[in-house]
């Protein structure tokens, strides 16, 4: 009797989600993995992971020096910032993060958010991610207007959570966008959010999952294991967990003291301008290995390092 072929068989595929692709904007498709990350045939690996560079709607007041320095000429101008992210850094996507509308972070109004959205849409030709402040009430008031301003652009809109999903889900459906379903590092809640959103009639095929990301030193191992389990569930046929995944590496990594503390305070840690981006890049590379389809990044040097890592595994893009 011949030995049967040894094969790691997965019965299902991660959903493919296409962002952009309308009004002359580039289309970016993510997902499609048929096997664990880098665990089998290249053809089964699915789509190349993508880098989204964060652009804030208003100049951040609390960014660490090394990070603020890198964007010092554009911090006040989201359109120029987005153009730099795409033109100079090669961002695949721009993540427009509306921290400036948060009542605790500037409390800017919907008119501001809509104007910024329009200017950034006009400034770049890559797909956008439009991401609220995380303050439920304010997001519910402002993000529907942001969604409407980008109607027909097939953006990735977020986020919806177990406790706050109805408004944004309805507006994303009406405006033809994709949706980020968020869970607090909890795989059971992630599944529940997907069920709730799909119960409203939103197609599972247009959802991208987001687990609040843990950075290096701050729960990265836990985030990794959750991402890994989500991916195994997707490949095993759980259609409610078959979505591609986005990770927020930039803002999480730069919250770490080890990333941002000045060398003057911790001489043995070395130069923070080099240390911070490394902290961010290590976080992102780890999460890419857990199956992340989009990583949100901040520092240009981290973008360069993660890009080089993706190029090494996937080959340079033409």
């Amino acid at each position: 009797m011949d030995l049967p072929p040894v094969k790691q068989a997965f019965s299902s595929t991660v959903n493919e989600v296409t962002l952009g692709g309308a009004n002359g904007r580039k289309a970016v498709t993510i997902g499609g993995a048929k096997t664990v990350p880098y665990g089998g045939d290249l053809e089964a690996t699915g789509r190349r992971p993508r880098i989204a560079v964060d652009v804030l709607d208003a100049a951040p007041a609390d960014w660490p020096g090394a990070l603020a320095e890198a964007y010092k000429d554009v911090l006040d101008d989201p359109a120029a910032w987005a153009a730099m992210a795409v033109g100079d850094l090669g961002a695949d996507l721009v993540c427009l993060k509306f921290d400036g509308i948060d009542p605790d972070g500037g409390n800017r109004d919907a008119a501001h958010a809509v104007a910024v959205t329009r200017r950034v849409l006009a400034a770049v030709n890559v797909p956008l991610i439009l991401w609220g402040s995380g303050h439920n009430e304010k997001d519910n008031a402002v993000m529907p207007k942001v969604s409407e301003a980008a109607k027909g652009e097939n953006v990735l809109l977020g986020t919806v959570t177990e406790d706050n999903y109805k408004g944004l889900t309805a507006i994303a459906m009406a405006d033809g966008h994709c949706l980020i379903a968020e869970a607090p590092l909890d795989i059971n809640i992630a599944k529940q959010v997907n069920i709730l959103v799909s119960d409203m009639g939103f197609p599972l095929e247009r959802i991208v999952m987001f687990q609040t990301t843990g950075a290096l030193g701050y729960g990265l191992e836990y985030a990794y294991s959750i991402q890994e389990r989500e991916r195994l569930a997707a490949l095993g046929g759980d259609t409610l967990m078959a979505m591609p995944v986005i990770c927020d590496c930039g803002s999480e990594a730069w919250r770490a003291k080890e990333a941002k503390a000045p060398a003057a305070d911790f001489p043995q840690w070395g130069d923070e301008a080099r240390r911070g981006p490394l902290w961010e890049a290590v976080t992102a590379v780890n999460l890419l290995q857990s199956g992340a389809d989009i990583v949100r990044l901040r520092h240009p040097a981290a973008v360069g390092q993660v890009k080089a890592y993706i190029d090494t595994l996937w080959g340079k893009e033409a």
Partner: peptide, 19 residues
């Protein structure tokens, strides 16, 4: 064998037949 969610009965029924 199935990831728990509060709607696990519904989730199971939604997927049954696909396996």
């Amino acid at each position: 064998m199935q990831i728990y969610s509060d709607s696990f009965l519904k989730a199971y029924r939604g997927q049954a037949g696909r396996q």
